[in-house]
Structures are given as C-alpha cells and as structure tokens.
C-alpha cells in the first residue's frame, strides 16, 4: 500500500493507493499555512477510513516541489522520516509533473503546468505526449506569466497550449492577451494536484527500478542561490 503526500503549496493532497487496484482514498483541500498541524491528523483519518494502519504501508511518495519552501519541506521531512522509520520504499516526484500528468494523458496539445509562487511568479514546465509516452519538454523554471507566454511563443513548432494549475482570473487574462486562441485553460478542478496521480507517477518510477534514499532526498527549490 502506497501513501502519497503533497504539501507543496497551500493546497494539500493525500492518497492511499493499492498497486494494481488504484486509489482507495484521496483527499485534496486548502490547508493554507496549516500543513504541519493538518497533515498527519488527516493521513490518520484517511487510513482509518479504509481500515489500514502504518504496518500495512509498503511505500511513501512525496511531492518534492517546486512550491512554497515551507510547504515542500513539511511533506519531504514527513515522508522521508516515515520511510526511514517504517523501512518503506520512498519516491520523490516533482509537483509540476503531478499537475501535468493527468492532462497530458487526455489531450493532444502541449500542456503548461503552473504553480503560483507568489508576487506574480510561477513555477512552470511544458509537457507533451510523444510516441505514446508523456514527457517533460522544458526544465522547471520560475518566471512571470508574460515571460512564460513569451518563451512558449518562441518555440519552433507553434503548438496550441493548455495551461493547468493555480491560475486565477488575472493570470488567465494575461495568458489570453498574450497567446489568443493558441492558449486554453484547464478547468479549476483539473488544476488541482491530486495525490492519487502522485502515487501513480511513483509507481512508474518503481517499475523502472527507481527509488529515492531517505538520507539524500532533497526538495526542488528553483532558486538554488540564497542571497545573503
């Protein structure tokens, strides 16, 4: 049984996933700055809902960011300690991948996943299905909405782009103004990072024999330099 945790923005998501079967329970909610106080109590509640305890777990998947520094660290600290303490398999999965994965599966256009970092900045990356495999086309980056549209506009192949993620009305207007009918916006409910998908991405890594080490798993911060 896989426990999946994502606290990389003010929206948190947790899921219990049985490999081969699917999501047994999933919860996504606006946790704000209460992730520390709410994460374990809600995991506890979700586990009792499906009638399992920590001894049933075999692995833990966690969103490693980008996102809010504090939020990402809450998830990563919790997940790696659970993995170490219970001797579970551990997978870190970038938050933008969790956002893009369900969209890429159902659309032929390219997908731009966005996470609001505050002060008008977004973490983002482009994704697309190629030869029946979904893949990330760009590095995780940190830009303003106009900068993102400009970068996409410079692509060699002019492809329609679907934006998904934490997109408010103002950002949606900026995207429309810059890209016109080359852009579409996924419905708000499709812009949630859902931990069930996080678990599936972790299991894809497991199928390739990929695991993370609790001693070395680090968050993705996107601003590697701390200015002194």
């Amino acid at each position: 049984m896989i426990l999946a945790l994502d606290t990389s923005t003010e929206t948190a998501s947790i899921a219990i996933y049985r490999p081969g079967l699917g999501v047994l329970a999933e919860q996504t909610w606006l946790s704000g700055r209460e992730q520390t106080t709410q994460l374990i109590p809600n995991v506890q509640r979700l586990m009792s809902l499906v009638g399992i305890d920590t001894r049933t777990l075999t692995g833990v998947a966690v969103a490693t960011g980008p996102g809010s520094f504090a939020g990402v660290r809450i998830g990563v600290s919790t997940a790696k300690t659970l993995a170490y303490t219970l001797d579970l398999k551990l997978w870190g999965v970038p938050s933008l991948d969790v956002l893009a994965y369900p969209q890429v599966a159902v659309t032929a256009v390219q997908v731009c996943a966005l996470l609001a970092l505050g002060r008008g900045r977004f973490a983002w990356a482009l994704y697309r299905t190629r030869s029946a495999r979904w893949q990330r086309l760009t590095d995780y980056a940190n830009n303003t909405a106009p900068e993102i549209c400009e970068t996409i506009g410079k692509q060699e192949a002019r492809l329609p782009t679907m934006f998904c993620g934490e997109i408010d009305g103002a950002t949606s207007d900026v995207i429309g103004g810059n890209m016109g009918n080359m852009a579409s916006i996924a419905p708000a409910a499709a812009g949630l990072r859902r931990a069930g998908y996080l678990a599936e991405l972790a299991l894809q890594r497991a199928a390739n024999g990929e695991f993370d080490d609790p001693a070395t798993l680090q968050a993705i911060y996107l601003q590697p330099k701390v200015e002194a």
């Binding site: 520390t36 374990i40 660290r73 600290s77 997940a79 790696k80 300690t81 303490t85």
Partner: peptide, 20 residues
C-alpha cells in the same frame, strides 16, 4: 527559527505516528 523548527517537528511527528 521557523523554517528550521519545521523540519524537526514534522520528522518527530512522523516517527510518533509511524511507531505509535
């Protein structure tokens, strides 16, 4: 320091939860 305290506190919670 808040960012520093967060790491230890969430780790401690994870242990207490995992091992009851």
């Amino acid at each position: 320091l808040s960012p520093a305290l967060l790491v230890g506190l969430n780790a401690a919670k994870a242990i207490a939860f995992a091992r009851q």
